[in-house]
Amino acid sequence: MSKRTHTRRGTARPIRHLGDPVLRTECDPVRTFDAALERLVDDMFVTMYEEEGAGLAANQVGVGLRVFVYDCEDDKGRRHIGHVVNPRLVAADGETLVEPEGCLSVPGLRFATPRHAHAAVEGVDMKGKPVHVEGTGYFARCLQHECGHLDGSVYIDVLSGDARREAMRAIRNLRR
């Protein structure tokens, strides 16, 4: 059962998978705040919930704009639900935690991924109102992960050494 709590209506969109160029292209800033942007955010929430994700970036549904949505808990069990338009990762600090991480665009695989224990993102909401989102633990991981997508990267890009080799081998095996 999905954890559907976003009350807006929307339509699920297909998730783009690793290999799709939209995932490796830096997203453009949102310049028009209109009904189409609201529809995109609604669709992204529906898609994220249907796919049982904790966050979703616009390029993961084929839209090259700087937008992401999220619904996940921090290290104190507090649930955070929202969206950020034109986000900038303004802090990624604290202890580096290496924990399993997955991605809707790399389905079925999880790898021990290093992320900072604290992150902060600044941007605006779909109406253009300033937003500051800050989190720790899993929520900090989510903020870093989604900002990475909008810069044209995926979580396997932060892996190194044996973890990266294992990830690349697993991805090659999926494509066979």
Rank of each mutant, 00 (worst) to 15 (best):
M1R: 12
S2Q: 14
K3V: 09
T5D: 14
T5P: 06
H6Q: 15
R8H: 12
R8S: 13
R9G: 14
R9P: 09
P14N: 09
H17W: 06
L18Q: 06
L18A: 10
D20T: 07
D20A: 13
P21G: 12
L23R: 11
L23N: 13
E26D: 07
D28K: 15
A35V: 08
A36G: 07
A36Q: 05
E38F: 09
L40M: 08
D42A: 07
M48G: 08
Y49V: 03
A58L: 05
A58S: 14
Q60W: 06
G62M: 11
V63C: 05
G64K: 01
L65V: 05
R66V: 00
V67S: 02
V67Q: 02
F68V: 05
V69D: 01
K76R: 14
G77F: 03
G77P: 02
H80R: 08
A91T: 01
G94E: 08
E95D: 14
T96W: 14
L97G: 03
E99K: 15
S105V: 02
V106A: 09
R110F: 04
R110M: 05
R110P: 01
A112G: 03
A112F: 00
T113V: 06
P114K: 00
H118S: 05
H118Q: 03
K127E: 04
G128M: 06
K129H: 11
H132V: 11
V133K: 07
G135N: 04
T136F: 02
F139N: 06
F139A: 06
F139S: 05
A140L: 11
A140T: 12
Q144N: 10
Q144A: 10
C147L: 13
C147G: 09
G148E: 14
L150K: 02
S153I: 04
S153E: 03
V154S: 00
L159E: 08
D162S: 02
R165Q: 12
E166F: 00
A167Q: 03
I171V: 15
N173Y: 11
L174Q: 15
R175S: 04
R176M: 10
